[in-house]
């Protein structure tokens, strides 16, 4: 499968916040949300189109890293995007966010784009963290914020694509070398179809290869 760019994501947050369900919901639309079924995966890919470019998103659940510094470090370092997920019905998962961010800051490259996700928005009757608190936290740390529901697929799409958009903008603005930091330049891009400037919304800039 060809692409211009491959963006590697990790999905992080406490256990039970619905990471693997979000991942499945985004990467595989054939799995329709069903109310009495909880199903998820630890890896998935999906290709989207941004600015006329084929961008393949590859998403890794970091399960199993908890006890090992080296694994945490590798995952963070190899990622261009991170979805930091908490469960709006469990305050303790929100309280842990700072620890996750601290980890991210310590291990990741400076270009990691982090999106904060308040998951399980379908369970608003059991809500323990208000939307405003999520927004305030995201603003404090400069993160993009969104509430999602893997159950109803609400906003799941926007969460992943919004992050991709941010990463893509950074590449376009040459804020980082696209062959490091969890981004891979694919055959379509390096094949010479015109570098960053090929999209309709930009004028010619220097190519990437």
């Amino acid at each position: 499968m060809s692409y211009n760019y491959l963006f590697k994501y990790i999905i992080i947050g406490d256990t039970g916040v619905g990471k693997s369900c979000l991942l499945l919901q985004f990467t595989d639309k054939r799995f329709q949300p069903v109310h009495d079924l909880t199903i998820g995966v630890e890896f998935g890919t999906r290709t989207i189109t941004l600015d006329g470019k084929e961008v393949k998103l590859q998403i890794w659940d970091t399960a199993g890293q908890e006890a090992f510094r080296s694994i945490t470090r590798s995952y963070y370092r190899g990622a261009a995007g991170a979805l930091l997920v908490y469960d709006i019905t469990r305050r303790e998962t929100f309280n842990q966010l700072e620890t996750w961010l601290e980890d991210a800051r310590q291990h990741s490259n400076a270009n990691l784009t982090i999106m904060l996700i308040g998951n399980k928005s379908d369970l608003s009757h059991r809500r323990a963290v208000s939307r405003e608190e999520g927004e305030a936290f995201a603003e404090k740390y400069g993160l993009v914020f969104m509430e999602t529901s893997a159950k109803t697929a609400d906003n799941v799409e926007s969460a992943f694509i919004g992050t991709a958009q941010t990463i893509y903008e950074k590449i376009k603005n040459e804020e980082f070398d696209p062959d490091t930091n969890g981004v891979k330049v694919g055959p379509l891009q390096s094949g010479g179809s015109g570098g960053y400037g090929a999209g309709p919304s930009t004028t010619a800039k220097k190519g990437c290869c």
Binding site: K8, Q58, W60, G64, Q65, A67, F68, S70, I71, S74, Y75, R77, G78, A79
Partner: peptide
């Protein structure tokens, strides 16, 4: 591919 290596290292440590 660093993610592949990370997954395998997780496996070995397990």
């Amino acid at each position: 591919e660093s993610m592949i290596a990370a997954a395998v290292r997780t496996l070995t440590l397990q």
